[in-house]
Design a protein around this nucleic acid. Structure first.
Lengths: 191, 191
DNA sequence: TTTCATAGAATGAATATTCATTCTTGTTTA
DNA sequence: TAAACAAGAATGAATATTCATTCTATGAAA
């Protein structure tokens, strides 16, 4: 087994256990067991628990944003871009329950706040498609004149809550309902 | 000091510490210290840690719903009722940062899922004003025909996210912005 | 009024457990 | 053979809960 294999096993095991049981329900011993490695081996690949948690996040985040960027309708109207993103988020996380749960855990932990803070304050750097959408929407005056953070809240919050409800069995999101959700979010931000 | 005083001291100390440091950042010893009681005393009033956490939630929840029910415009149009609730939530949690943070912690923990499950499945029992609003909206066809859980998601999620952003300093919610937020949520659910 | 007895409230040191991290020893690879 | 890798036992710190003991308030007895 190659070096990267083992590293991946650890990442996967940890992601699954954190998703299923929360950060505090998954001790390192359990992670190592599930990954099929010794407890000490984890520390050959990750300095400590926190680093492991952050590493999982960046790995998942990259995978997720790559998915969103696939077939992204660059240059098309703001509304169309918004629908691409909204439905893309739903599609992705409906198919990936564990990644979704990991994400939820992460963003409601101290780690998550840090990340969000960087995201919202560092306008420089990373080329974020949602941020770009906001700026374009403002420029062409197709969305309400509201602060960027609020734009995120209105546009994204119901989507995540709805996906959560789907996974918890409160609703069943099919294509039609997905359309309804994104369309409703659009109604809340469009002028 | 009366018996209820001491119980209240414990509830308050625990609520504050849980809000500030999360459930896992506040050991019982710290709670007892802050409450000004012995470590063992907590266990005279609460069977164990979990019971304490649940008890805080029900206490806060009662307080919160009572606030929402004050001057509730019974019998008025659905839109007006919705604005009362939406702005009521914002007002309340802007003024009560600690209760808000406790709430967030709670609802993103295993305890929270349990509570929400009961809420959405037990249609009998508690007389919930948001539920009533949903049914009335359906009846008069002033809101979109969507599942109840999704109604919650669209109507409430951005409000909570926005309040969180306010407390984290990303936006500043004044009266005007509060109106904008609730109005935007309304746009997403109205027909 | 003062003294004593009692209930039960309160305490916090002691206990038992859990868990991240390190260390020692053995194994594989180059 | 030397160097890197892996395993899992050992360590020590943290922490929820318990429980033997102390304290306090009330009221009866002297």
């Amino acid at each position: 087994m190659s070096k990267t294999d083992k590293r991946n096993d650890i990442l996967n095991a940890a992601m699954t256990l954190f998703a299923e049981q929360g950060f505090h329900g998954a001790p390192m011993a359990q992670i190592s067991e599930r990954a099929g490695v010794g407890a000490g081996t984890i520390y050959r690949y990750f300095k400590n628990r926190d680093v492991l948690i952050m590493e999982i996040h960046t790995t998942l985040f990259d995978k997720f944003t790559n998915h969103l960027k696939e077939r992204y309708p660059h240059g098309r109207p703001v509304r169309e871009c918004f629908f691409h993103i909204g439905k893309g988020i739903i599609d992705y996380f409906i198919k990936q329950p564990l990644e979704f749960r990991y994400n939820e855990q992460f963003h409601h932990s101290p780690y998550g706040l840090e990340v969000r803070r960087n995201k919202l304050t560092n306008t420089t750097g990373e080329h974020d498609i949602v941020l770009e959408l906001y700026e374009k929407g403002m420029e062409y005056q197709v969305i309400k004149p509201i602060p960027m953070a609020l734009f995120f809240d209105l546009a994204i919050a119901p989507i995540f809550w709805a996906v959560r409800d789907h996974h918890q069995g409160f609703i069943k999101i099919d294509n039609a309902l997905s359309e309804t959700i994104v369309s409703s979010c659009w109604d809340s931000i469009r002028i």
